[in-house]
Amino acid sequence: MDDELDTLPKIGAPATRALHDAGYRSLRDLAGVPPAELGKLHGVGPKALRILDEALKRNGLVA
């Protein structure tokens, strides 16, 4: 298993809590989730979205 795919990148505590509360526990869980949907979560801002997008692209989980 790839550790990076099984965890969330370091995006800050509020964003991590928001993702966990929404049921997203790993980078794999975020594959195919529209950024606009993630951006609606309280605590997930532009910086967190950028970091998540970069991690998803780096791991081939988004085009």
Rank of each mutant, 00 (worst) to 15 (best):
A31P: 10
R58N: 09
R28P: 02
L27F: 02
S26G: 04
L41C: 00
R50M: 14
V44T: 01
P34V: 10
P9T: 09
P46E: 15
P14V: 01
L8I: 00
E37Q: 15
G39E: 02
E37W: 05
K40Y: 11
G32Q: 08
G45L: 05
D6F: 02
P46R: 15
K40V: 01
G32L: 11
R58M: 11
L27C: 00
V33N: 00
G12K: 05
L19K: 07
L19H: 06
L5C: 00
H20P: 06
H20G: 04
P35K: 05
D21A: 15
A55E: 12
K10M: 09
A22G: 01
D2K: 14
K40C: 07
G60W: 02
E54K: 13
P34E: 03
K10N: 12
E54N: 06
A31V: 02
H42M: 14
H20A: 14
A31K: 13
P9R: 05
P9N: 07
D21R: 13
V62A: 11
L61E: 10
E4R: 15
D21C: 00
L27D: 06
R17V: 11
A31G: 03
P35C: 05
P46Y: 12
A15F: 04
L38N: 04
G39T: 09
R28D: 07
Y24A: 15
M1Q: 13
D53S: 09
D2Y: 08
P14A: 01
L61V: 11
H42I: 08
M1L: 11
A36G: 10
P35Y: 01
G43F: 11
L19Q: 00
H20S: 13
V33C: 03
H20W: 15
A48T: 06
L41K: 00
V62F: 08
T7R: 15
L52I: 13
P14F: 03
G43E: 05
K47W: 06
P46W: 10
A36T: 14
D21W: 08
G45R: 06
G43N: 04
V44I: 03
E37K: 12
K40T: 03
V44E: 03
E37G: 05
R58V: 09
E37M: 13
A15L: 01
P14H: 03
D21N: 10
